[in-house]
């Protein structure tokens, strides 16, 4: 194929990953016959491969390694250390802070709803993704669905006819089991809808246990805010809003803390501001009786478990 064909113009865009799926496939067909383009793409890919290094380092979430390795090795029938890793992961879970608990609850709810989880290669991450995505011939790893249970070494061979009867019976049973399962799911869905309705009903005559103005923690800070706390049977609900916040840089984030006589500190979540405004809503399912101060700090990132940055806003409260 002659170099300088119209397709040759796509080399840079292909290497960068900006072609649609169809365009990518077309370009790959062209690549197979255009040595000059193949060479050019190889050179460009070497440059593109450097772009991830331009990313600034960020702190990894606490316990991520245990969670990920515990999950992977725990799912593997081959691993002989999976139990240890899984135990390590559960230890971490037991020590989670409120913010992490929320993250964990999210994962649990994802599993409970039987959505295809991200950790099962296939549907969730690939199937529904925009059809316009490229699929370059870059190394694809584990793209095909991989069931958790190991597949049999061979598919059953359809030889003796009587087996087909058993297979039919088994299939029929499976259909029934699935039917029951689906019914059960519908039942759960109905319950969830009921609960959702209950929780989304507008509160009547809601009376905050605490509503305090947050004042600047230092002279040169012009920020102000409001913290509203409601305690009911579901826990302690905290609503924090702030404005005129200092400009964040890099990975910085604002973090809310509840404190008890300067000793006990509870991480009440992080948020980033937009145009100097920001806030968060959080439900803490633990007894916070005795906590007497709320503060917002400017932190180097959103993952701290203890205050590391500078205080921006604070107020006395009485829980």
């Amino acid at each position: 194929m002659v170099h300088n064909a119209p397709e040759c113009d796509n080399a840079e865009m292909y290497a960068l990953g900006g072609l649609s799926e169809e365009e990518s496939k077309a370009f790959e067909r062209h690549l197979a016959g255009c040595e000059a383009c193949a060479l050019q793409v190889a050179e460009l890919k070497a440059i593109v491969d450097l772009l991830p290094l331009s990313v600034e380092p960020v702190q990894t979430p606490a316990g991520m390694q245990d969670r990920i390795l515990g999950h992977i090795l725990g799912d593997s029938a081959v691993s002989n250390t999976s139990n240890q890793d899984a135990d390590a992961a559960s230890d971490v879970t037991a020590k989670l802070t409120p913010a992490d608990s929320a993250a964990d609850a999210f994962r649990e709810s994802t599993r409970a709803s039987d959505l295809p989880p991200m950790n099962e290669p296939g549907p969730r991450l690939q199937a529904d993704v925009g059809q316009t995505r490229k699929s370059q011939s870059e190394p694809e790893l584990g793209r095909e669905p991989q069931p958790r249970q190991p597949l049999p070494a061979e598919w059953p061979k359809a030889k003796p006819r009587r087996w087909s009867v058993w297979v039919s019976a088994a299939l029929a049973a499976a259909v029934i089991v699935l039917g029951i399962y689906v019914f059960s799911l519908r039942d759960q869905l109905s319950d969830l809808r009921g609960q959702l309705t209950a929780t989304t009903e507008p509160p009547q005559g809601l009376r905050p246990n605490e509503a305090v103005n947050l004042s600047a923690a230092a002279k040169d800070i012009v920020a102000n805010g409001l913290a509203t706390i409601v305690i009911d049977s579901k826990g302690t609900h905290l609503l924090v809003q702030a404005e005129k916040l200092p400009q964040l840089k890099g990975n910085e984030a604002f973090q809310v803390w509840l404190m008890k006589d300067g000793s006990g500190v509870v991480n009440a979540g992080t948020f980033v501001s937009r145009d100097g405004k920001g806030g968060l809503y959080l439900t803490l399912d633990r007894n916070l009786s005795g906590y007497n101060q709320i503060a917002i700090t400017q932190e180097p990132d959103a993952f701290g478990q203890l205050p590391r940055g500078t205080a921006v806003l604070s107020a006395e409260i009485s829980l």
């Binding site: 990920i68 390795l69 090795l73 799912d75 290669p121 991450l125 790893l141």
Partner: peptide, 8 residues
Amino acid sequence: QELFLRLW
């Protein structure tokens, strides 16, 4: 997690 699962 997805990356290392695929790697594994």
